[in-house]
Simulated assay, not measured.
Amino acid sequence: MAFDPRDPVFLADPYPVFDVLRAEAPVHWHEGLGLAVAVSHAACSEVLRNRAAGRVWRDKEPASSFVAFNLLHQNSLLENEPPRHTRLRRLISAAFARGHTERLRPWVRSLADSLVSSLADAIKADGSADLLAHVAAPLPVEVIAELLGVPAADRNRLQPWSNAIVKMYEYALPAPAAVEAEAAAQEFVDYLRWLAAERVSAPGSDLISDLVAERDGGDRLSDDELVGTAVLLLMAGHEATVNVVGNGVLALLTHRSEWVRLVDDPGLLPTAVEELIRFDAPLQLFERTATEPTTVAGYELAPGDRIAALLGAAARDPLVFDSPARLDIGRTPNAHLGFGAGIHYCVGAPLARVEIAAALEALVTRLPSLRLAAEPRRRPEFVIRGLRTLPVTTN
């Protein structure tokens, strides 16, 4: 069974298709995508950990039309393999290790509480409101902006940049969207070069200041690497968190017993966060390229062959998860692959968990009677899975 990543019926619920594919074989060739796709948990884990299948960046062509977009990825931690990846991760992890997650934890909880308060006010005024617009979308943008030290007056520019750039990861992207993505990438590059220069002369407590200052002997991040790191943090941090919160709250409200369970026992927040990442994965596909002859679950790959881990399919594998189609906020253990695996495991995972937990805690504490007000609208993309709107009420 093939699937069309543009089919609205498939996008509404891809998991039954993944179940059929997984029952047939752990890896399939997908003609439309032009690559192999791994659908079992074991095969996806192997894709992510196989050192003979790496992240091999290919410039978006024509390269002269996508200078900024390509620059971001040429210098990204995510798009490089050892030895450069090892060096980048060492420098970036050292900067993160200066306590940024713990520094932001109380601020994130306060921010989430404030955003949920604004959602409650909007519901009181109008009868219903969009949870994405009031909570899920602004929360990660504000957190990443605070992490990077972006001045308050400039923060409203971050989300449009991220939204435009990530569309480049979809398949069969319309030409106008690609032009918009490059324009956003160039504006973001220019802005971050300016911000980094500001932090050289006036350092603060933010991550940009630490990235600028981080040294390992005589080594440090280049200007392009610093820009690539900051953009990766925004795009990965924003897109993942907004969609975990959106997809996750939708799952809770449509599985009412689990919402009530969390309202009654907020101590389940840590396992709830992991379960919501698993249940409706915000990132459905992660691509790798064979750098030498290798196999994944018996599927042969020659150098240059591409293979993708379908993370949403891995998350519903019954060999790993009991009753995988059931939402269980107390599920443990929970071996989801939502933050990746191996050397490309998400460096921002601890901060993402803090954000998601803060949003859920504020919602169940302040709005325990929350429910859907109307049918949500889903984004028409496959790779980045999320909602456009999530109308809610307390009536």
Rank of each mutant, 00 (worst) to 15 (best):
V347E: 02
W57M: 12
Q186K: 08
F3N: 00
E102Q: 15
L195V: 00
H344Q: 00
N75C: 00
A309H: 05
F66Q: 01
A236H: 08
H28P: 13
S209P: 03
R316C: 13
R103C: 07
P82T: 11
V56N: 06
T291E: 13
L367D: 05
L387N: 06
P83T: 08
T229Q: 00
A112K: 04
L88H: 04
P203H: 01
E198Q: 12
Q159P: 03
V231A: 11
E142W: 02
P176G: 04
P26G: 04
D219L: 14
P106D: 08
V227P: 02
A136K: 12
R22E: 12
A53E: 07
R316L: 09
A172R: 14
R199N: 08
D305T: 02
D210F: 09
E300Q: 12
A359I: 05
G34L: 00
L158C: 07
L234C: 09
V227H: 01
V67P: 05
V189H: 03
E239N: 02
W57C: 04
S65W: 10
S162W: 08
A185P: 11
D130Q: 04
P376T: 06
E214A: 06
A68W: 06
G228V: 11
L250K: 00
R378W: 09
F3H: 01
D322S: 12
E361D: 15
A38S: 05
P8M: 05
A52C: 07
Q159H: 13
A213P: 07
A213W: 03
A281W: 04
N50P: 05
D224G: 01
I144F: 02
P266F: 14
L35H: 10
V245T: 11
F286T: 15
A185F: 06
Q159C: 06
A181Y: 02
A63F: 07
V354Q: 09
A297N: 07
D264Q: 14
F3E: 04
D219T: 12
E225P: 11
A68D: 11
A97V: 09
G218A: 14
L195S: 09
